[in-house]
Amino acid sequence: MDPDDSTGPAGADHPERAPAPAGRRRPRWLPVAIAVAASLLMLATVVVVSDVVSGDGDTASGITPAADPSAPDSAATALRDSEAQLATVDCEPGELRPGRDAARAYYREVLDCLDRAWQPVYDRMGVRPQPASVDVADVRTTECGELPPADRALGLYCDADHTIHLPYSRLTTAVGGTDEPAFLATLAHEYGHHVQALTGVFTETGNAMSDADGAAESEVGRRFELQATCFAGLFLDAARDTGLAGPSGGPEVAVQDFANWSGGESHGGARLQQQWATTGFTGDSVAACDTWSARAADIGGAGEWSGGSSSPASP
Rank of each mutant, 00 (worst) to 15 (best):
A71W: 10
P72Y: 05
V110N: 01
C113E: 12
S61H: 04
D51S: 04
V52W: 00
R116C: 04
P19T: 00
W29P: 06
P72K: 01
L43D: 09
R80S: 13
G23V: 05
P93T: 03
L114C: 13
A117V: 10
L79A: 09
A22F: 06
G62N: 07
G94M: 01
P65M: 08
V49T: 15
L86F: 15
A37L: 04
R104F: 02
L41N: 03
E83S: 10
Y107N: 09
C91I: 08
V47R: 10
G99W: 02
D68N: 06
D90Q: 12
A37H: 06
I34V: 15
A37D: 15
R26K: 08
V52S: 00
E92R: 01
V49F: 15
L111I: 14
D101L: 11
T77I: 00
P65E: 11
S74M: 07
R26I: 09
A105L: 09
A117D: 09
P31H: 05
A37T: 06
I34A: 12
C91H: 07
E95M: 08
C113R: 03
L41M: 08
P69W: 11
R80Q: 13
R80L: 13
V48H: 09
L96T: 01
E109N: 04
P93G: 07
L30H: 10
L79M: 14
E109Y: 04
A76D: 06
L86D: 07
I63V: 14
L111R: 12
A84G: 09
G62F: 01
Q119E: 13
R104N: 01
R97E: 00
T77C: 01
D68K: 01
P27G: 07
V89E: 05
V89P: 04
R100N: 05
T45N: 03
W118K: 00
G99A: 03
T59H: 00
A44E: 12
V32F: 08
R25L: 15
P27W: 07
G23H: 03
Q119S: 13
E92L: 04
S54W: 05
P65H: 02
S70D: 13
P93C: 01
G62P: 03
T88S: 12
E83L: 07
P65R: 05
T88N: 07
Y106A: 13
T59C: 04
P69Q: 06
S39C: 11
L41V: 10
R108E: 13
V89A: 00
C113P: 07
A76R: 08
R108P: 00
S39N: 07
A75D: 09
